[in-house]
Design a protein around this nucleic acid. Structure first.
Length: 972
DNA sequence: ACATTCACTAATGGG
């Protein structure tokens, strides 16, 4: 029986489940594979699929999902030399370039899918990208005149993206201009020879046919093909007229692939075109052929892909899909599956961008070694010890496990495997949409569209919110992934979004669906960081010593050598506002040669401390890279920092940045006039302080700039490989966090058990000499603080002042409420929150405090589960409670309120225990958010089954903080 | 047994 997440179907987009694989010998001893397959979850009825003539080598096994092309005659599919295709794991879409790279080295292609490299490329690559753009823009306007091309080239040379690339490659705009200029004549020549709308014109090709391009159907057409398991962007989709001797001319729509490099006409280039003809089948009838256009010479090569070419390329794709889709194997203990072997072609390895990963994989303990003696590959890992390799392989496995779970939950395949209606139920989709009104061309390649729900059909709420990345498709699977972009406005019946292409050409009766794009990034940043850590370079070597080998962090003895004389007074002044542990933290950081860990217990002023630290470092003339995992955490610090005279540059998408910080973003600064490379360099070097998220380290600035210090806030919540990202670019680092609060979220249970939720902060905490604790807090009164002290901090947490310790909730009209309650309830012992006790979800308990004079905005409601929050929010729908914030524990981390009401939800003394409440750290966060009053609601017998809550309840009982003998409600 | 943030991407060419 197929597992739940597997979706099976028949028809054009069929999906079969492999029940059995038999290797048999057919006629004349030739090998065959006979598959027993089914398109039904119940495994009935079954069909047979015979693989022969080379197809039998497809790495297919029981439990795989396949797509079949061809014919099924009385329950039997035949995939042989002449007909039929088998597409293994068809929902793993593989790009045309990936498959082409697999022709020479399959191992490289597999590694390329795992480790997206970011090395900034080369001058030739940048040139290629820019010349492509010039061609494409000229095509869109139908104008290939020299003036037009020069104008487009000049525009491109000023474009922000390319300027960033030039910065990385240390090129000048003049260098680039020269490079590009050389291509322009070939472009005009090509257009003169081939681009004709008149019936007679065209150019004779080697094949003795006249060819003319009559129109440009699409540019950068994006195709996701779940039929063939392919994806790709087609440079140019052209309407072509082929003149034939003695016969009427033939009109076809064909892919045109542009190349700016050598006119190699290589198998890789030709394969790319053949794959594009296959993908095009998702959109239109078979083109059968396409073109390679070499822009260096202007020569056009027709590429015809026959069944054999397509067959061989799809077999290559299947092998690739097999390795990507089965990255791990499980025999008792899970480990990484073997990769394709190492090739013997030294020349190919010499230039391979994956050679380090190739070598790491080969030597990783517990992985399969290729047993190849390839010297070039061996050299790549010589500098690493067993411990380093173990660290790498361990984390690679953890990431693979987690990726597996993430993909199973919400991959892009839901767009074509689930109907819009089904998808809407789980959120993140809006179907039954119609394109309304004109499409506005907002800027270069950004088009504003408005979609409205069609009459009839499902209405209701949408899972989309402003800022979400979305993919646009049609509901009939003709235009899967036709455009992508961001939601700019949303209501229950309409969505506006900025898309990467203009859809106004689509027929007006197309029914669209918008799917939230969870992204295919997976954990690629994690893997790239892990790989970089193994690099043969000084910064990587140093991080390996500190993080993998646990070399003791070093400190200097005396502040005087780091503090510049002229900064002393300023620093002393800044220090004045701090308490003792905070001052110690500052000193420790200044004395550190490697790293410092600042443990910020709840309410101890982490943000203030970081802000002060930055001010001090800035005053000393040190450069600082300020990061955290989330945009909001980064901006929190910046909002404080901007009040002092500390300048900074904020990197990151403006859409995600706090409005008050926008003025400091690169985007804003650039809009104020940056057109030349020197101007950009100046922007990048101007400020001592640069702030971004940990994931933002792909930015060009990091290809060249280095920092004296890197500060990572929320470090205890950041996954280890992500946290590594910014550390490569700084001399020393400071991690700020509290491992007694929430750890990084890991979905895969096995990965979590193997330690994936250990942050770098937690790992390094064992080096106690690097740790400084902020234990003086200004948030909770002493009673509330005592809970957490008992539970997690062993009494180390202290109140910062008598005012904090004794602060109580002020309720101006408490007396009158009390009297009312006495009248209505009669029994004096049932006062105040009795109603709430009987019905935990009843909002009356909030009503009490509101009427008693507490502002709604001072009240926060916390529950561990989203569903619970929806219920509570629903009950609090009235205007009086609109400012009561209802949120999850996770979302409340780092924040506080005067009154906090925690709902523990669960009430089932024998039911299954959820994972969430078992976490000590999540409970610790929940009970340390309140300043003056903490109300907890839950069923004690149920909760006692969770170890952390049992300890909490014991403490509460001891301190007489429980209000009922058969308690439903706990209070302090 | 359900908690969440980040992310523009597939292709750019060189032996």
């Amino acid at each position: 029986m197929a597992e739940n997440h597997v979706i099976l179907t028949t028809g054009l987009h069929n999906r079969y489940w492999i029940l059995d694989v038999q290797e048999v010998h057919g006629a004349r001893g030739s090998a065959e594979k006979h598959l027993t397959i089914t398109a039904s979850k119940t495994s009935h009825p079954t069909e047979i699929c015979i693989l022969k003539d080379g197809w039998e080598s497809t790495p297919v096994s029981t439990g795989d999902v396949v797509h079949l092309e061809g014919q099924c005659v009385s329950g039997t599919w035949l995939i042989d030399r002449e007909s039929g295709f088998l597409v293994l794991l068809p929902d793993v879409l593989i790009s045309g370039t990936s498959i082409a790279s697999g022709i020479r080295c399959m191992r490289r292609a597999v590694l390329g899918e795992m480790f997206k490299r970011f090395d900034g490329g080369s001058k030739q690559m940048l040139n290629g990208t820019i010349v492509h753009e010039i061609f494409q823009k000229a095509a869109m306007s139908g104008d290939f005149s020299m003036e037009r091309l020069q104008l487009l080239a000049n525009q491109a040379l000023l474009s922000p993206n390319y300027l960033g690339d030039m910065y990385t490659l240390k090129l000048t705009q003049e260098d680039m201009k020269q490079e590009i200029w050389e291509y322009l004549p070939a472009l005009t020549d090509w257009a003169r020879d081939y681009l004709h709308t008149s019936p007679q014109a065209g150019k004779k090709l080697l094949t003795l046919k006249f060819i003319a391009v009559t129109d440009f159907v699409d540019i950068e057409e994006n195709i996701w093909s779940p039929r063939f398991g392919l994806k790709g962007k087609i440079d140019v989709t052209a309407g072509v007229r082929i003149h034939r001797k003695g016969r009427p001319p033939l009109n076809r729509v064909m892919p045109l692939e542009l190349k700016t490099g050598k006119e190699s006409n290589s198998i890789e280039h030709r394969s790319q075109v053949i794959l594009y003809t296959l993908m095009s089948l998702e959109r239109r009838s078979d083109a059968e052929a396409g073109f390679l256009l070499y822009l260096k010479t202007g020569n056009l090569h027709p590429i015809v892909g026959n069944h054999m070419d397509r067959r061989e390329l799809l077999k290559l794709r299947n092998t690739l899909a097999h390795h990507i889709g089965n990255s791990m194997e499980k025999e008792g203990k899970t480990r990484m599956a073997p990769l394709p072997g190492i090739i013997t072609d030294r020349q190919a390895c010499k230039w391979c961008p994956q050679i380090r990963n190739c070598a790491l994989y080969d030597r990783a303990p517990d992985y399969y070694s290729s047993e190849s003696q390839q010297l070039l590959v061996q050299q790549e890992s010589e500098h690493l010890t067993e411990a380093h390799l173990l660290y790498f392989s361990h984390w690679l496995l953890l990431c693979a496990l987690e990726t597996h779970t993430m993909e199973r939950k919400g991959g892009r395949h839901n767009i074509w495997l689930q109907s819009a209606q089904e998808r809407e139920k789980s959120g993140g989709c809006m179907g039954n949409m119609q394109l309304i009104g004109p499409v506005k061309n907002q800027s270069d390649g950004v088009y504003i569209h408005r979609f409205e729900r069609r009459r009839g059909g499902e209405q209701g709420v949408t899972g989309l919110i402003v800022g979400d990345r979305v993919v646009v498709s049609d509901q009939d699977l003709q235009l899967i992934g036709v455009a992508a972009g961001y939601v700019t406005d949303v209501s229950s019946t309409a969505v506006s979004c900025s898309l990467d292409r203009d859809l106004s050409k689509c027929s007006s009766d197309v029914v669209f669906r918008l799917d939230q794009d969870e992204g295919v990034m997976g954990l690629s940043t994690h893997l790239v960081n892990l790989s970089k850590m193994m690099e043969r370079s000084p910064p990587s070597e140093r991080l390996r010593e500190l993080i993998v080998d646990f070399h003791p962090p070093q400190f200097i003895d005396n502040l005087s050598s780091v503090l510049p004389r002229e900064a002393k007074d300023t620093v002393a002044n800044i220090l004045k506002g701090l308490n003792k542990p905070q001052k110690q933290a500052m000193k420790k950081v200044l004395l550190s040669k490697d790293y410092t860990l600042i443990v910020g217990m709840p309410g101890t002023g982490k943000t203030t401390t970081i802000c002060t630290l930055v001010r001090i470092l800035h005053a000393c003339g040190f450069s600082v890279l300020l990061t955290s995992y989330t945009h909001s955490a980064v901006d929190n610090i910046l909002l404080k920092l901007r009040r002092f005279k500390v300048g900074f540059l904020r990197l990151g998408r403006a859409q995600k940045v706090h409005p008050d910080i926008l003025a400091y973003t690169e985007e804003k600064c650039r809009a104020n006039g940056i057109h030349t490379l020197p101007e950009l360099e100046n922007l990048y070097n101007k400020e001592l302080v640069v702030a971004t998220t940990c994931m933002g380290v792909k930015h060009p600035i990091f290809s060249r700039r280095r920092f004296d210090f890197c500060i990572v806030d929320e470090a205890s919540q950041i996954s280890q490989p992500v946290c590594l990202g910014p550390l490569f670019y700084a001399q020393r680092f400071v991690l700020v966090g509290d491992h007694q609060q929430l750890p990084p979220i890991v979905q895969n249970t096995e990965a979590r058990l193997l330690g994936m939720d250990e942050s770098l902060f937690k790992r390094l905490e064992r080096k106690s000499e690097a740790v400084v604790q902020l234990n003086v807090q200004y948030r909770m009164n002493s009673k509330i603080m005592s809970l957490s002290n008992t539970l997690m901090y062993g009494g180390r947490l202290e109140c910062g002042s008598e005012r904090t310790a004794s602060a109580m909730l002020a309720l101006p009209s408490q007396g009158s409420v009390q009297r009312q309650l006495e009248l209505s309830l009669g029994r004096p012992e049932d006062l105040a929150w009795v109603q709430a006790a009987l019905e935990p979800l009843n909002p009356v308990c909030f009503l009490d405090t509101t009427q008693a004079g507490c502002r709604a905005s001072d009240i926060g409601v916390i529950a561990p589960y989203r569903q619970q929050l929806k219920v509570i929010s629903g009950l609090l729908a009235g205007p009086a409670f609109s400012t009561v914030e209802v949120n999850t524990v996770d979302k409340y981390q780092g924040r506080d309120k005067s009154v906090i009401i925690v709902s523990f939800v669960r009430s089932h003394p024998e039911g299954n225990l959820g994972e969430l409440l078992k976490d000590w750290r999540r409970l610790n966060v929940a009970i340390t958010r309140a300043k003056h009053k903490l109300l907890m609601v839950g069923s004690a017998p149920t909760l006692r089954r969770y170890a952390p809550l049992e300890k909490l309840l014991n403490h509460l009982t001891q301190e007489s903080m429980i209000s009922f003998t058969l308690p439903r409600l706990l209070s302090c």
